[in-house]
Design a protein around this nucleic acid. Structure first.
Length: 843
RNA sequence: GGGGGCGUGGCGGAACGGUAGACGCGACGGUCUCAAACACCGUUGAGGGCAACCUCGUGUGGGUUCGAUUCCCACCGCCCCCA
């Protein structure tokens, strides 16, 4: 042992160890991401294997929480191990910084959102840095920075040019509390996802991204996402909600207006007995104009606008409605159908109007019953009861009756026939419907990227030229929306000239939904500060698609669908060379405490800083992964954390006394063959390498990887305590096993692992090649065979691995216990699985 | 109502058709200590037996199999998504 040998203190001082290594990693730029695109140089993609490991970027709300810790620790374990496996790893970090909470805080305390957000970012960055993640902090981005949102605006303009961004009048979800429009996806049970206020419907001119144009591709390409959880794919499929049916055009009795409907049951068209339109349907006011019914209809529409959206469509809700006094004509039989306004018909779905077939639709049946409207059966299991009254709707299969040219056909055949019939006469056609709606991105809020267009009386909506980007947020005094965007209160911002004709014009004052920012941030990481482009094709094509994406299940639908949509548009624009952004996805479970999701309002939050202060970052990192399967929800336990600290203390003590200035190589099988304790320990070390590697790399089973490390430490500690490793062969095996523990531990607990590695005589563990198990040690000479009689375990025996089936069976039967059990009985069958079991079946 | 998932010790969980309960927490007993903390050793699914051992046991009931926590069916309970 030389004078340079690094001796360990008696006590593991996590705080000192963590500060020391974080400083070294910073100083050495240990986790520098290369290549990325920078100003003044054209980046060239290397010809080496890469891995883009990405966790969903945090929203900087002030404090990091345990969910963040778990998320980023998982990603870091993957990044750390892959980096050491010789793969070029990209592991960046940023902040999804333009969202409502900062703005609401700004309104409350009168401080600019920018100031609040910057402070919050500084705070969460400090917390994340304390955890020692292997991130290149030089690539950090914040979506609220003009150097970022400039390119969000630039991308918006590309959508606009392609006709994928458009402004149109629409009934929108309006949050009266946040004073803004919400996307359908942000309305949960009729309430604002953010603040919980009851959402109302309003007619406003809004910006939409035409995600519905991509509905089928978003659906089809899911077949390529083989490494996504089925659960997430199912949720996306349901959300897109493809259904096959037909468009049927109804005409008002006076022949003046056509009202199309979408139905999945065109076969039941002969069963339509009335016609319903949504309260927010734009045709409602003109239908009842100057009629006696106008007042009643108007009152009904007003009441509906205040109603809870989810409630309105609930199956068990009483079916309210009001007659308009008008009729449409059923194109298939010329019948007059009364038009009612009913709030269970949503403008959001289909065309906002439906043909009601009470005999075969539950809600239509309930409506017919409530309002004394006729019911006519057109599908029957048994055609002889075609005219028997119905007690309830019968949505099932059968044969068409009372349906003219469809009579006698089964339901699928009738659907096809009706589709043809409609198309022949030009009153409809078979069509595919989607539940997915266009993405409403307008927000009448301050803290977001301004939509980069101007309104000109002469030229209409005109794009801001690329060279005038970014359109910067103006300074305003009051961030509170008053039914219009706070940007409208900045006259210098609003007044501008038209880029097209040079005449006076006004700027768009809406800002973009924050989900727009987060739909492309994973591309910007490859060019975080590039001022000449959003990113460079060659570099973005090198790193993308993301090899491993990790985040919360709560983003299963919105964020992931939007990011997929963006990527497909950019692919079509030839800005990127891939059409799916995330090759492999892992969704983590949530952390609960005292039986509830951790939240400030419940007062059950455990601040990560507290745990770091008491036990160290490495302990916390270990514990959040040890809690249980990473995909499952897990319950926080204070004593569980202490257990992981005890484990690190044990590893520390294991290394203590083995310090030195050079690492030990792996003993060969011959070296340890005659030393049972050493042989067993090295075998376990090799098995642990194999298991940890597989658990991290393929199974995402971090808790079992940590368990395996603990078992290895337990065997080493126990043997050492028993004096089994005091001779040179034993000492070498122990030191090799100890090194293996430290090396594997690095992914989870990098600081303490680097410290211990140094004490063992190693250097720069983060760059040291990941260990590979020696197969010679993975196969044992002998194995324990379970011996069963009639499928019940009765005894075990030790046998050489290469023993024949016959010998194994003979040995099993020779065991005294087994012999006694089978004595005098007929052996009907002997099942022998080498290396596992012998099962003797007697009768 | 439709779709998906999950039920294993006191608790978190392990076991990818082959010895159920690894690892950790908690609990109990012991060593060390004046005492404690720490650490270390041992016990810890239930029932029975002095013991070697035996019986039962993975929500319930069936099924497939030499063998089922694992696969299939039904039911019960809980959770998530969509209505």
């Amino acid at each position: 042992m030389s004078e340079h040998t690094h001796m360990l203190g008696e006590r593991y001082d996590a705080e000192a160890v963590e500060a020391k290594w974080q400083e070294i990693w910073d100083r050495d730029h240990a986790f520098r991401a290369e290549p990325i695109s920078v100003d003044g140089a054209v980046a060239v993609a290397p010809d080496t294997p890469k891995s883009y490991v990405l966790e969903m970027l945090p929203y900087p709300s002030g404090e990091a929480h345990m969910g963040h810790v778990k998320n980023y620790t998982m990603g870091d374990v993957v990044a750390n191990s892959r980096r050491r496996q010789g793969v070029r790893v990209f592991h960046p970090m940023g902040y999804d910084a333009s969202a409502l909470p900062a703005e609401n805080a700004a309104i409350r305390v009168g401080e600019p959102p920018e100031v609040i957000t910057k402070r919050n970012i500084a705070r969460i960055r400090e917390q994340l840095r304390r955890l020692g993640f292997s991130i290149d902090w030089d690539t950090e981005i914040a979506t609220c920075d003009p150097e970022y949102y400039k390119w969000t605006q630039w991308l918006f303009l590309r959508f606009f040019e392609k006709g994928l961004a458009e402004r149109r009048e629409a009934a929108v979800n309006w949050c009266p509390n946040d004073q803004t429009v919400l996307a359908n996806e942000q309305v949960v049970d009729g309430a604002c996802e953010r603040c919980g206020a009851q959402v109302e419907l309003r007619q406003l001119s809004q910006w939409f991204l035409r995600i519905t144009d991509y509905a089928q591709r978003l659906l089809d390409d899911m077949d390529t996402l083989v490494d996504w959880p089925d659960r997430v794919l199912t949720m996306q499929r349901n959300w897109i909600g493809r259904s096959e049916g037909a468009r049927v055009v109804f005409t008002t009795e006076d022949g003046e207006r056509q009202i199309p409907v979408f139905t999945t049951r065109p076969d039941t068209l002969f069963g339509a007995t009335f016609f319903l339109i949504a309260p927010e349907h734009p045709m409602v006011p003109t239908l009842v104009a100057e009629r006696d019914e106008a007042a009643a209809v108007d009152a009904y529409v007003r009441a509906a606008a205040r109603a809870d959206v989810a409630d309105r469509s609930a199956a068990d809700r009483p079916k309210s409605g009001v007659f308009t006094g008008r009729y449409v004509v059923n194109p298939v039989n010329g019948e007059r159908l009364p038009i009612w306004v009913a709030d269970y018909v949503l403008m959001d779905y289909g065309t906002g109007a439906i043909m009601a077939v009470p005999a075969h639709d539950e809600r239509d049946f309930a409506f017919a019953t409530a309002h004394d409207l006729p019911v006519r059966r057109v599908v029957a299991e048994d055609p002889s009861v075609a005219d028997a009254p119905l007690d309830d709707a019968e949505p099932g299969d059968g044969v068409l009756v009372n349906s003219g040219f469809l009579d006698g056909l089964d339901v699928p055949a009738a659907k096809t026939r009706m589709g043809e019939w409609l198309a022949e006469r030009g009153v409809g056609e078979p069509t595919v419907g989607y539940r997915l709606r266009d993405w409403l991105i307008s927000r009448q809020r301050y803290w977001g990227a301004p939509i980069p267009v101007v309104h000109c009386d002469g030229c209409g909506v005109v794009a801001v030229p690329d060279d005038q980007l970014p359109v910067l947020l103006p300074e305003v005094d009051d961030y509170a929306p008053q039914g219009r965007s706070p940007l409208a209160a900045a006259p210098d911002f609003v007044a501008t000239t038209c880029p097209s004709c040079g005449g006076p014009a006004t700027r768009e004052t809406d800002t973009m939904d924050t989900f727009v920012d987060s739909s492309w941030y994973f591309l910007r990481y490859t060019a975080p500060h590039l001022s000449t482009a959003a990113f460079e094709r060659e570099i973005v094509d090198y790193w993308l698609p993301v090899d491993q994406y990790i985040g919360g299940i709560e983003h299963a639908i919105l964020h992931l669908l939007y990011a997929r949509f963006f990527t497909k548009v950019l692919y079509d624009l030839e800005l990127v060379g891939f059409s799916e952004p995330f090759a492999r996805l892992f969704t983590q479970g949530m952390i609960y405490h005292q039986g509830a999701k951790m939240s400030k309002s419940k007062g059950n939050v455990v601040p990560p800083d507290d745990i770091v202060n008491r036990f160290g970052a490495d302990t916390l990192r270990l514990y959040v992964l040890f809690m249980g399967p990473a995909a499952d929800d897990a319950e926080w336990s204070d004593t569980g954390v202490e257990g992981q600290r005890r484990f690190l203390d044990r590893v520390w003590r294991l290394v203590r006394g083995q310090e030195g200035d050079a690492l030990t190589g792996r003993p060969s099988l011959d070296d340890v063959r005659d030393h049972p304790a050493a042989l067993s320990l090295v075998r376990r070390a090799e098995a642990t390498i194999a298991k940890v590697t597989e658990d991290i790399g393929e199974r995402f089973s971090f808790h079992t990887a940590i368990s395996a490390l603990q078992e290895l430490v337990n065997e080493a500690t126990k043997g050492r305590g028993d004096g089994a490793f005091e001779d040179p062969v034993g000492a070498r095996a122990l030191r090799y096993a100890t090194q293996t523990v430290v090396s594997l531990l690095h992914s989870f607990a990098p600081h303490v692992a680097c410290e211990l590695w140094e004490a063992l005589g190693g250097q720069a563990l983060w760059a040291d090649p990941w260990p590979v198990a020696d197969p010679a040690f993975l196969v044992a000479d002998t194995v324990t065979i379970a011996v069963q009689v009639n499928g019940k375990l009765r005894d075990t025996l030790e046998a050489p691995v290469d023993v024949t089936k016959e010998t194994l069976a003979e040995q099993a039967k020779a065991l005294p216990k087994i012999a006694a059990l089978i004595d005098g009985k007929t052996i009907r069958k002997e099942i022998v699985v080498p290396g596992r079991i012998v099962n003797i079946v007697v009768g």
